[in-house]
Structures are given as C-alpha cells and as structure tokens.
Computed example of a mutant assay.
Amino acid sequence: MIKQLEVVRREHLKEKPDMATLGFGTVFTDYMLSMDYNPEQGWHNAVILPYQNIELSPAAQVLHYGQAVFEGMKAYRTGDEVRLFRPEENFRRMNQSNARLNMPEVDIDFMVDTLKQLVTLEKDWIPTGEGQSLYIRPFVIATEAYLGVRAATHYKLLIILSPVGAYYGSDHLLATKIYVEDEYVRAVRGGVGFAKVAGNYAASLMAQTRATELGYDQVLWLDGVEQRYVEEVGSMNIFFVIDGTVVTPELNGSILPGITRKSILELAQHLGYPVEERRISIDDVFEASQAGTLQEIFGSGTAAVIAPVGSVKYKDQELVVNNGQAGLVTLDLYNHYTGIQNGTEKDPFGWCVKL
C-alpha cells in the first residue's frame, strides 16, 4: 500500500481567471494528482504534478471496453478556512463503483489525506463568490493495452481540480424545466445504474440532446423495466414535497446513491421535515399535482447542489410546480446545506473536513 506522496512543482504558475465570470468545468488548476496500479505493486507512484495531458496507448482498454469510474466533490473557502465536504463518502462510493467494474479499490484514508494536500496546495484557486467552489474530479481508467474482453490489469487514478460557478449559471435558484424520457432507459437493476461509471452518462446523452432541443434543462429517467417509476435526473437525484413530506425514490440498484441525496435526507430529518424513501410513479406525481398536494420538486447533486424544478413534461402532459418558483422547503434546505458547506452555519453532523 502507498505510504508516500511525491510533489513535483511547476516552474511557472498559470494566470488565474476572472473568478467573477466562472462557468462550470472549463478552467483547471496548476496541479493534479496521479497514481498507477498494477497487480505486482498495487497502487503506487502517487504524485502531485503539474496539470498536463496524459499518454495512452490506442489499445488502452478504457477506450474499447469502458472501464472508467469517476467522482465529484467540492472544496469551499471562507476567509482563510478551507473545507472539504464528506470526501470519505465519495471515495467509499468510488470503491463501490470500482468493485462493480472489477477494478481495484483504493485506500480511503490515504485518498482523503492526499486530496487534502492537493487542495491545500491549490487553495488560492478556490473562488469565494456566492454559488462558487473548487470542483474536484477523481477518476480511474483502465490503461492496459489489450484488445480482449476481460478486466484490465493496469489502471491510472487522477484527480483534477476546476474553479466553478453555479452549475445552472448565475441565477442558481432559477427553477429548471424537466423532460420525462419515455423511450430510452438509463439503467436497470442488476446493471451499473448505482455506480458512477462513465457509460451511464454516455447512455443519457441522446435523451438529453432531445430534451434540450425541446426547451428543457434536464431529463428525468423512469425505471428500465416498467418505465413507470421515477428514478433520477441526468445530473441529480430527485425530491418531491408532497403534502408537507419530503419524498425521494428509494434506492433499488439502478439509482445512484448520491452523497448530496444522503445528506439532504439527514438534514431534512434534522430540521423536522417528514421524510420518505419509496417507490413513486410518474402518475403519482401528476395525480398529486392535480390534487393540489404536490408543493415542490427539487434535484440534488454535487454539481447543482439543490436545484428547484419549475415544470415537468411527460408525454402530452405538463405540470407547473409552485408557479415555477423555488419553494420554501427547497430554499430552507438549500440555505442550511450551503451554510454548512461554506462554514457560515454550524455543522452538527461533522460532515466538513477542515484543512
């Protein structure tokens, strides 16, 4: 097991962007983390080095058989204090994804310690504007040059960093419009829907493109068997406030177990909201809307944090939620959640790791 981390300094640091104009995922910091794996040495060659392109064989198995797993998390800065939000949960989920794709697991404690060193080195890249953060992208790919269908023997783990604004732009609490996909499916139980693997997102792109062309922001996926039960949005887990209760689809093997989802459930209970994890059909959602008990819908994810949903389109029906505005429960959860993340509120759960 790796015990040491090498740091290779770059000669000249990059010019930092205008933090007031940040988008999402287009600017990258001075350094990244790299590690390699082979059966003889396990994970080895851990090094923080200048951000740069990587070299891959055209026969690298990731390019042909899709062994690729990734995570997403964020760092926040308030004054001189830098915080990570539940990084151990992300590396724990990375190990679950790795195991599903027959890839080697990582040492969670080592990865958290290594990430702390990387973010400390790059702390001047952390923006401090409202809705801004340092986005952290760890990922693992199969690098063995072999054209055969089996698990690879060689892998590379990288962590890259990107200063970002809000995922949906400067007005991050503007309600999004959701299109319910009723032709394609994203995942089925027994597959890889619960894992954060690259192929899940590739499978979603055609439906996302169609939704965008129709004027919608995101796709809401239904289950892959009956295509009746709500699962998740392309970049978020989904929540409904029905008659005062915060409801989200139960994890079933084809829904990603989001870290933000888990945290929102814990926070909502802490704040006194009734919470339910259960199967909910798209018909249930429209019936609740017609009955007047559907009060709010919002999505949750590392990138988007909490995003209110203003309308939902399903076949020839469209419902508008809370007059297309963020609801009171959504705003309450957003304010408490982001306050914990950026250090302006107490953290009663011990979620934040201070650097």
Rank of each mutant, 00 (worst) to 15 (best):
K14A: 10
E144A: 14
I259M: 04
V197N: 07
G191S: 10
T153A: 15
Y65N: 05
V119S: 06
I297G: 04
D223T: 13
V247N: 04
W43F: 00
H154N: 13
A211V: 07
V106S: 01
P104C: 09
A187W: 07
A211W: 00
V192N: 12
T212W: 12
G193I: 00
D109I: 03
L256D: 09
P274V: 09
P348Q: 10
E55S: 14
N95L: 01
N98E: 09
P249D: 11
Y168L: 14
W221A: 02
V247I: 10
V275T: 12
G193R: 08
M73G: 11
E130T: 11
N102W: 15
I282T: 06
T26G: 02
N322R: 06
E318M: 11
E130N: 09
Q269F: 12
F24N: 02
E318V: 08
A60I: 05
F349E: 06
V180S: 09
E250F: 07
E276I: 15
P127I: 00
S235A: 11
F70I: 05
Y168F: 15
T176V: 15
Q341I: 07
A152E: 00
Y179A: 07
L328Y: 14
I280L: 06
L214D: 08
H12Y: 13
Q317A: 14
G244H: 11
S34C: 11
G301H: 03
G301S: 02
W351H: 01
K346M: 08
V246R: 03
E71G: 10
T78E: 15
E105N: 06
T212C: 12
E318S: 10
T212Y: 13
P274E: 11
H154E: 13
G339I: 02
D36C: 08
R93V: 03
I340H: 01
T209H: 09
E287H: 10
F91V: 08
D109N: 06
V47Q: 15
D316E: 12
E232L: 11
R150E: 05
A59F: 13
D217Q: 00
H172P: 11
Y65K: 00
L220G: 03
T245R: 13
V62Q: 03
P163C: 09
E276M: 15
L134Q: 01
G79N: 02
F24L: 01
Q67P: 05
A142F: 01
L157T: 02
P249A: 07
N90V: 09
R228H: 03
V119Q: 00
A202M: 01
F70Q: 01
V197T: 03
D217E: 01
T248W: 00
I141N: 12
R86S: 10
M111D: 00
P39F: 05
G25C: 03
T120I: 14
K262R: 13
A288M: 12
T120N: 14
G131R: 00
R228A: 05
N323V: 00
K315F: 04
F286H: 03
K196R: 09
Y65S: 07
T120E: 15
T293A: 15
I340C: 03
T344Q: 09
R137W: 13
